[in-house]
Deep mutational scan, measured.
Amino acid sequence: MTTFKLIINGKTLKGEITIEAVDAAEAEKIFKQYANDNGIDGEWTYDDATKTDTVTE
């Protein structure tokens, strides 16, 4: 398992969460579901060097 981080730069929700996932694709799926569940819809970027997804509304 690898640690992945999501940075949220939303209009109403800001912060970050960290998860353990098998790979980047699994982490992205989990993060996008989390964002959807919390009403966050924005531009996504991924930095492989830091294993960090960022969503900005």
Rank of each mutant, 00 (worst) to 15 (best):
A25T: 09
I19M: 02
A25P: 02
D37L: 09
A21E: 02
T12V: 11
G10W: 14
T56M: 06
D48E: 13
L13W: 15
N38H: 14
V22A: 10
Y34H: 02
A25G: 06
Y34S: 00
T18N: 03
E20R: 13
T56I: 06
I8K: 00
Y34Q: 00
A49S: 10
N38K: 08
E26W: 08
Y46S: 03
T2Q: 12
V22D: 02
E26S: 11
K29I: 09
G10C: 15
I7M: 04
F31W: 07
T52C: 12
T18Q: 06
K14V: 10
A24H: 15
N9S: 05
L6C: 14
K11I: 14
F4T: 02
E20F: 14
T2S: 09
G15M: 15
K51M: 09
Y46C: 14
L6P: 00
N36A: 14
N9G: 03
V55G: 07
E28H: 15
V22Y: 12
Y34C: 11
N38T: 04
I40C: 12
I19R: 01
G15E: 09
A35Q: 03
I19A: 01
V55A: 06
F4H: 02
W44Q: 01
T2D: 03
T2L: 14
A27Q: 01
Q33R: 11
L13S: 07
A35W: 08
N36E: 13
I8M: 03
Q33N: 04
E20K: 11
L6V: 06
T12K: 10
N36T: 13
T18I: 12
D23S: 12
T50A: 07
D47I: 12
K29Q: 09
I30T: 03
A25S: 09
D47W: 10
Q33V: 07
K29N: 03
D47P: 05
D48A: 13
T50D: 04
E57K: 04
I8N: 00
I17S: 00
E43G: 04
D47T: 09
L13T: 06
A21T: 03
K14H: 08
G39R: 05
G39M: 05
D37Y: 10
T18Y: 13
E26C: 11
G42C: 14
F31I: 03
V55R: 05
Y34I: 09
Y46F: 11
T56W: 08
A21P: 01
I17E: 00
T52D: 04
K51H: 11
T54M: 09
M1E: 02
I8D: 00
T3Q: 10
L6D: 01
D23R: 02
M1Q: 06
D37G: 04
A49D: 10
Y34K: 01
D41T: 12
I8Q: 00
N36D: 10
M1W: 11
M1V: 06
D47F: 10
N9H: 08
D41Q: 12
T18K: 04
D37S: 09
T12I: 11
K29H: 05
E57N: 06
I8L: 07
T3V: 12
I30N: 01
D23A: 03
N9Y: 13
D48G: 06
K14S: 08
E16W: 14
T18S: 08
K5Y: 12
K32F: 04
T2H: 12
L6Y: 12
N36Q: 14
I30L: 08
G15S: 10
G42R: 03
G39Q: 04
G15C: 15
T18W: 13
N38R: 12
D41Y: 14
Q33E: 05
T12N: 09
L13Q: 06
K51V: 03
E16F: 14
K51W: 08
G39N: 09
I40L: 06
L13P: 01
N38G: 03
E28N: 11
A24W: 15
E16H: 09
D23M: 04
T12A: 08
Q33T: 07
D23F: 09
I19D: 00
T2G: 04
E20Q: 13
G39W: 07
G10I: 13
G39P: 03
N9D: 07
A24M: 10
Q33A: 10
I40F: 09
E26Y: 07
Y46E: 02
D41F: 14
Y46R: 09
E43V: 13
I17C: 14
I7R: 03
L13A: 05
A25K: 10
A21Y: 11
G15F: 15
T45V: 10
N9C: 15
E43I: 13
G10M: 14
V22T: 10
N38F: 13
G42H: 03
V22K: 12
G10Q: 03
I7N: 01
A24R: 15
E16I: 13
A25R: 11
I8V: 06
T3A: 06
A21D: 01
K32M: 08
I17R: 00
E20W: 15
T56E: 07
W44T: 04
K51G: 08
N38D: 02
K14P: 05
G42A: 04
G15I: 15
T45P: 03
T56F: 07
V55K: 04
M1R: 12
E43R: 08
I19E: 00
G10F: 14
L6T: 01
A35D: 03
D48H: 12
L6R: 00
A21H: 04
Y46D: 02
Y34R: 01
T56P: 05
M1T: 11
T54H: 07
I17H: 02
K51D: 03
I30A: 04
A25M: 10
T54Y: 11
I30V: 08
A24G: 05
G39L: 05
A25L: 11
G10E: 01
I7W: 06
G39D: 06
D23L: 04
T52Y: 05
E20D: 06
E20A: 06
L13H: 10
Y34T: 00
D41C: 15
A24D: 01
T12F: 14
D37I: 10
D37M: 12
A49V: 11
L6H: 01
D47M: 10
G42Q: 04
G42K: 03
D47R: 05
E43F: 12
I17W: 12
F4K: 01
I8E: 00
A21M: 05
E20L: 14
V55C: 10
G42T: 05
T50M: 08
I17Q: 00
G10D: 02
N36P: 01
E28C: 15
F4P: 01
I19F: 05
N38Q: 10
I30H: 03
W44Y: 03
K14Y: 13
I30C: 13
K14E: 04
T45M: 07
A27C: 13
N36G: 07
I19K: 00
I40D: 01
D23G: 04
K51E: 03
I40K: 01
T2A: 07
T3N: 02
D41P: 03
K29W: 12
K5V: 10
T3Y: 12
E57C: 12
A21N: 03
N38M: 15
T12G: 08
I40M: 03
Q33D: 03
D23V: 09
N36V: 13
A35S: 03
N9F: 13
A49T: 10
M1D: 01
T45F: 11
I7T: 01
E57R: 02
K14T: 08
N36R: 15
E28Y: 14
V22R: 13
G15Y: 15
A27P: 00
A27H: 00
I7G: 00
V22S: 09
A25Q: 12
T45H: 12
M1S: 07
D41V: 14
K32W: 09
K51S: 05
A49I: 11
T12Y: 14
M1K: 14
D41N: 13
G42D: 04
I8S: 00
D23Q: 03
K51I: 04
T56H: 07
F31T: 00
K51P: 04
E20H: 11
N38P: 02
D37Q: 09
D53Y: 15
A35C: 15
G15K: 13
T52V: 08
K51Y: 08
L13K: 05
E28D: 09
Y46I: 09
L13V: 10
K32H: 07
K5E: 02
E26A: 12
D41A: 11
M1P: 05
T12W: 13
K29A: 11
L13Y: 14
